[in-house]
Design a protein around this nucleic acid. Sequence first.
DNA 1: TATTGTTATACTCTATAACTATA
DNA 2: TATAGTTATAGAGTATAACAATA
Lengths: 156, 156
Amino acid sequence: MIVRLADGQRAGKVPEVSSELTSRLGYLLKHAQEELRARSNAALAHHGIDGRELAVLIVLASGEPASQQEAAARLGVDRTTMVALLDVLEHKDLVARTPDAHDRRRNVVELTAAGRIALQRGRKTTDEVEREFLAPLSQRAAEQFRGALRALVVRD
Amino acid sequence: MIVRLADGQRAGKVPEVSSELTSRLGYLLKHAQEELRARSNAALAHHGIDGRELAVLIVLASGEPASQQEAAARLGVDRTTMVALLDVLEHKDLVARTPDAHDRRRNVVELTAAGRIALQRGRKTTDEVEREFLAPLSQRAAEQFRGALRALVVRD
DNA sequence: TATTGTTATACTCTATAACTATA
DNA sequence: TATAGTTATAGAGTATAACAATA
């Protein structure tokens, strides 16, 4: 799977990306994220979803059944963004909206049977993609890398 | 009325993001990148630029004087994207376009005196931002983190 | 014919404001 | 009045296609 070196960046004199740039933390983080996202989406496409949609499925499967707004909060996006995400997932029959009996303004959003299957497969697939992505590191280094990232992001 | 304090919804607290989500590598990388970018842009704003613009200045300062297309290749963006970036930087008087004497289709793009100053200050500022961002890690862990990122991104 | 810079256009992702139906 | 879902819209950021000038 040669994704990164595609395009016209191969023939003739290849103007390399500036080395000062590639030593910047911002550059490294951005490209690591983009590479992992591309790989994840390519692998998840076999199950008819992408990484963002899998994240929604994960959020809906965690904790109690959620309204759209609660799901949006758990995912960390705006409620208007959640509308569009759920439109797609509902159309794929992976989630179902049901009016809340106790508060008819709300929709309770839950996974369908197909949604639970897609979730299971998506988890397994992204686990594999993560392992491949981290392959250049020793197992110990990979664990330390993950731990460092968690310390940087979760802080507080 | 049913009192719903599901999940991490303690009073006065933001509803927590699903914990399965925050253990995913994709989530961690994305949020680390966004956090660092936000901090960098906030700090660089004092010098009238943002992170992307600093990246252009770095690219232009590295190696030989570049055409717009060479600069785009070094930065890893499309040439049409470079046009817009240079429009802004030229308007701020940080770079100058000069028609190439030997090939009049090309523009040679170089830093102005103000551009060199902005570059110097931008480098110093992002160095500081990176240090602060990595502060939760020991110095040794920070170096290992940077090395791991480089191994993951630069791979070949 | 091919290439450089440019413009017009479009697409993705996301957010803000306003509308509707409920509460 | 306030809230949940929705719609319309806008703004980054980036890419593709087409065009003029030049090679």
